[in-house]
Computed example of a mutant assay.
Amino acid sequence: MATPPGHGTTSLTCPEARSHVRSVLQPLCDTLPEQQAALLQQDACLITSELVTNAMLHAGGVREFDAGLQGQVLTIRVSDHSTTPPTPRPHAPAVPGGHGWLVVQRLSTDVSVEPDAHGKTIRVTLDASRMTG
């Protein structure tokens, strides 16, 4: 796993991570219908923001970050320093915050949490062929 060029994980920001994801997606988005490309970019950037923010707030920071494209499938990986898996808060629409993990799960094609000796890696995939408006 690698961080975006020139960005160490200790200083990785959400805008930098989203920018990296957009640059990874650009070749695919250039081949998709405009609405499908827009949905893919929006979902990917929201998921990236949630994962990076949650790593910063709840898991000791981002250890590693990577995004890659294989065909029409985007994979985002965020590693942090905590072995505790993410858990959704109980449903409380009137309470701000705490809904990000549910959003990540609903927008993603697949989500996995992989513990390791230094924390965990959350791996999320988005399949562009499933994007509809």
Rank of each mutant, 00 (worst) to 15 (best):
E16K: 03
E16Y: 00
E16L: 02
A17Q: 01
A17G: 01
R18C: 07
S19V: 01
H20Q: 02
H20R: 01
V21M: 11
V21R: 02
V21Y: 09
R22A: 13
R22S: 14
R22E: 13
S23L: 03
S23W: 00
S23Q: 10
S23A: 13
V24G: 02
L25K: 08
L25M: 11
L25E: 07
L25F: 02
Q26D: 14
Q26A: 13
Q26V: 01
Q26C: 00
P27M: 05
L28Q: 04
L28M: 06
C29Y: 06
C29V: 03
D30M: 12
D30T: 09
D30Q: 10
D30V: 01
D30S: 10
T31H: 07
T31N: 09
T31V: 05
T31D: 10
L32Y: 14
P33N: 12
P33I: 04
P33Y: 02
E34Y: 13
E34I: 09
Q35P: 12
Q35R: 15
Q35G: 15
Q35D: 15
Q35K: 11
Q36S: 15
A37P: 15
A37N: 09
A38G: 11
A38M: 14
A38Y: 07
L39Y: 14
L39M: 14
L40Q: 14
L40A: 09
L40S: 15
Q41Y: 04
Q41N: 12
Q42G: 15
D43H: 15
D43M: 07
D43L: 15
A44G: 08
A44Q: 12
A44H: 08
A44E: 08
C45Y: 05
L46Y: 07
L46E: 06
I47S: 13
I47Y: 10
T48P: 05
T48K: 00
S49R: 11
S49G: 08
V52H: 03
T53C: 12
T53P: 01
T53R: 06
N54G: 07
A55Q: 01
A55G: 02
A55M: 04
M56G: 15
M56K: 12
L57P: 08
L57F: 03
H58T: 05
A59D: 07
A59E: 11
G60F: 11
G61N: 04
G61V: 01
G61P: 05
G61H: 02
V62A: 02
V62E: 07
R63K: 12
R63P: 08
R63F: 12
E64R: 12
F65K: 01
D66R: 03
D66H: 15
D66T: 10
L69Q: 02
L69W: 06
L69V: 03
Q70C: 09
Q70M: 01
Q70P: 03
G71I: 06
G71C: 01
G71D: 04
Q72M: 04
Q72A: 11
Q72K: 10
Q72V: 01
Q72E: 10
Q72C: 05
V73W: 03
V73Q: 13
V73N: 06
V73T: 15
L74Q: 02
L74W: 03
L74I: 08
L74K: 05
L74F: 08
T75S: 11
T75I: 02
I76R: 00
I76G: 00
I76W: 00
R77K: 11
V78A: 15
V78L: 06
V78Q: 09
S79P: 06
S79L: 03
S79H: 12
D80Y: 06
D80G: 05
D80T: 03
